[in-house]
């Protein structure tokens, strides 16, 4: 089973990278961009029997830092 873990900064946490990219988009002339936030996508290939609890545990213990980041688990049809 393929699983995608979407890791994003929590609302309210300053994202200097996102801000710099926003600035660059403005510089390229793309109007109407209101905000840019940069996150991380982690793709896992796991056994089909892997439970939601185990996936969440992976996120809590390593894949995300829950002090500053949220995560979302997406199971992708094989």
């Amino acid at each position: 089973m393929k699983v995608r873990i979407h890791v994003s900064l929590k609302p309210g946490v300053l994202d200097p990278q996102g801000r710099a990219v926003h600035h660059a988009l403005d510089g390229l002339g793309f109007a109407g961009v209101e905000d840019v936030r940069i996150g991380r996508l982690i793709e896992l290939e796991v056994a089909d029997t892997t439970s939601d609890e185990v996936l969440a545990d992976m996120c809590e213990k390593l894949l995300a830092n829950t002090v500053i980041e949220n995560y979302r688990i997406e199971k992708v049809a094989a």
Binding site: V13, L14, P16, Q17, A20, N65, V67, I68
Partner: peptide, 9 residues
Amino acid sequence: GALMRNAGQ
């Protein structure tokens, strides 16, 4: 807490 990228990049 956590240590993030410097605000000035």
